[in-house]
Amino acid sequence: MYIPGGAEDAVLILDRLETHFKVRTKPFARPLSVHAVDDVSLAIRKGETVAVVGESGSGKTTLGRTAVRLIEPTGGRVLYDGQDITHTKMKNLMWLRRKTQIVPQDPYASVNPAFTVFKILEEPLIVHHEGTTEEREDRVHKALESVKLIPPDIFERKFAHMLSGGQRQRVAVARAMILDPELIIADEPVSMLDASVRVSILDLLRQIQTDRRVAFLYITHDLATARHFANRIAVMYAGKLAELGPVGSVLAEPLHPYTQALMAAIPDPDPENRFRKIAALPGEPPSLVSPPSGCRFHPRCPIARQGLCEVEVPALRELRPGHFVACHLAV
């Protein structure tokens, strides 16, 4: 097993993970497969945040869900705490459901509108047979306090529609935290929120991380928030890893042309911006049913070399300490 970036002290290891979906375009037609995640190897260390960055359709959400077996992988292995869970039966995975949690993207869809905040937070405890009624009450209060929904006895009686978007996301974070997980998959947790609220939610997640040493898989399309929250960045393109490395190294010196384009596409507030053209990539991400040959990025790549890039699949190479890139031309 070879994991780029190493796998010491890892809570989760993805070893050449592959998730393909079967789709039929017509009834009875031969099913086609969508290569959502292809040959991704990645480890998340205890207490570490790895940001998975990519456009929609790059397979980042599928990667996150496959990592905790909410979607079944079609190839490769998933190891949790060194234990292979790729083929473990679901009923034997209740412990995994306690140790890994998800903060979903849309706080308007992910909290039950018919439940009070108290019930939302108590439910995971009931499912996992935790504590007596009084103990559960106490833990719900503590969880609400830890996400700054204060005073808890007011907030626990509210329904989701009485809360703002930021407050709902805090409830979703509290729900993810209440079982004391070791790993949280945060799937675009701030993309639906206002800019000023975003920072406070990310601050909250970071604080939880340092207080309790929780590892995060932070799925996002926004490199700017990844910079301020993650330790390492994994850039995905069309189901494959394009670049992987420590945040500082990747953003100071992006080696993959796709990462470079992603960085150019996100403007910092600067009055000079309006006088320049953004160095954006033309076209659209490729179809994952029949991904391009060779390097999947070659049809949109500004520096693709004919005879090489459309022929050979680039391997991840370590060009800087801990900083890997899948590009033939990067040096």
């Binding site: 800019a195 000023s196 975003r198 990310l202 926004d222 700017a224 928030t225 301020h228 910092d268 507030p269």
Partner: peptide, 22 residues
């Protein structure tokens, strides 16, 4: 000023700052 400092910057190390209250 608060709004500007709450924007996570991609090209600088500056830490974003949240606006208290709603």
């Amino acid at each position: 000023q608060k709004l500007l400092s709450s924007v996570p910057r991609l090209k600088s190390e500056e830490k974003p700052d949240s606006i208290p209250g709603t």
